[in-house]
Amino acid sequence: MADLPGLLRGAVADERLALARLLTAIENDAPGLRELLPQLFAAGRGGHLVGITGPPGSGKSTLVNALTDEWRRRGQRVGIVAVDPSSPYTGGAIMGDRIRMMAHAADRDVFMRSMASRGELGGIAAATWMAAAALDAAGYDPILIETVGAGQSEIEIARLAETTVVVEVPEMGDEVQAIKAGLLEVADLLVVNKGDRPGADLAARHLRAMLSTAGGRIGRKPPPIMLTTATSGEGVAALADAIEAHRSVARSPQEAPARARNQVRRALAELALRRASQHRAWDSTLQSVSDGELDPFMAAERLLGEDDMA
């Protein structure tokens, strides 16, 4: 069994292999991890947690690389967790986010880790969050979490961040796409990437127009909309500034409680699922639901109750 407190000490002392192995322990939910969590979070240094999400092919990885260039120029140490989906059939995954990042591979002040989502029970949102905490403890700031914005769990991951950046492309569709609920609503900053393509300005204008008329019950200001060309670096410095400026907003008395609620909700869901799936009656309860003898809510009730087979 790995010596987790030792790995944490090593990570805090900037030993990269120790940090890498701590991240593996987090990913695998290794024995002893739960006991380490208070120390892990207490070791945090207040790094800015930034989520970057958007549809496949919108240029997230290229943008993360360009932002990393920019932050390195500013003397900051950048931590990155890139999450890619696991195959629901084989459990395998291909993680290609490094392809765009290899220029930083040998830079000791950039640490990038690829994580596969490993299915719902794997608790990827919580694991990503703990991984970001480990990078924070090791002194990286900002810490970027990159996910494909393709499903609810990716949105969940993005929402654990202090600042959520949603990356779109000019070809995202007509105005109706912009008023659909979901991804755009969780954005603190909205980026139209591939700004050198025809129609980029128009797409940004459409988004601005649609989002500025939103209101009603949402009760928050529409996010700034930025135009970038990640491949050339155009607009990237301005985006880095906007992310930086959002740090204090995210930590303000107005915004911080909403994030705390998201975090506790996520921790609660994680803990409840974990506890329930270790219940001795897990399999038999699932079977009862599948046989139609028990409804899912009663099942959940039972699995959250005492582990008592009597």
């Binding site: 084989t90 395998g92 995954a93 291909i94 392809i99 290899m102």
Partner: peptide, 16 residues
């Protein structure tokens, strides 16, 4: 290898 259940990190061409 993905289809065999491995988690594969691919780094691309021209690496030192």
């Amino acid at each position: 290898l993905r289809d065999e259940g491995f988690e594969v990190i691919y780094t691309g061409l021209r690496q030192t």
